[in-house]
Amino acid sequence: METTTTRANPLIDPQLHIWHGEVALYLFLGGLAAGIMIITGAMRLRDRNAAWSSHLALLSWCAPLLLSLGMFFLWLDLENPFNALRFYATFSWHSPMSWGAWILLLVFPVSILFAWTQTRRSASGRLARFDAWAREREAPLAAWNVAGGVALGLYTGILLASLAARPLWNSALLGPLFLVSGASTGAAFLLLFRLRDDERLALGRLDLFLVAIEIVVVGLWLASLASGGRESRAAVALFLGGPYTVSFWTLVFAVGLATPLAAEWLERRHGVVPGRVAPVLVLIGGLALRWILVSAGQSTGWAIDVALH
């Protein structure tokens, strides 16, 4: 089949390339923030009276901070950034991006309030009243922190998955994949800092578990694409011999998943307190996953030959 088109629209032809690194960074940082929220919230819910190391308590502030940074990258991606407030002039229930915008609005106060409750300080005056108010609600805030994190993490995947026109993205597994990957990078991020050994061990165990789950989800995702229709098979072929094969299998799989899995498993088996090598690899893999997916997904589309079968 020979095809020709006179269309040569910038950013669209010969292949869609509307989203670049900004979007990948936003998805990565969003997932990371979600991971931190889920992990810190869950840790607090699990043991309401546990005394956290001062670093861990401070790190709960990283969720809103990293999210802000991510949103800054998203804002950079907007072609018409001065209309950005339009996201909050309506709610479009059918648009995942609209959900996302409102989730962000919800996530910010929750994560800030939660971080507030985890940080030691001496408050006075009106601030003391606020402090008391917040601390009374530590548990529901922790629960909401987990819920907000899950929503945020899922959303980063669903944002892409809802775009049915791009077969690589159009998978129900993309939301869970991004969620578990975000949680894993969250754990890895926390492990970069000086924490108590018990905290490190717990986080290392968690990350091992998450990386293992992520490998399973990646496998399921690729398998579901490979067993799908013509468009899906063409999409997954990008990673199975296509132009993204090397980058995907080295950066995402080998560096981001397999090596950390092995390292963390060995650490655990030998009872070693987790180091920083595996977390760094997990973070590299998490960013690569999003970067490659954003890029590769745009090169997939619906078949064009319809009239001359």
Partner: peptide, 13 residues
């Protein structure tokens, strides 16, 4: 109302 987020472009088959 358009922010130029390009979600519509990505969504159009």
């Amino acid at each position: 109302k358009c922010t130029g987020c390009k979600a519509c472009i990505a969504g159009c088959p």
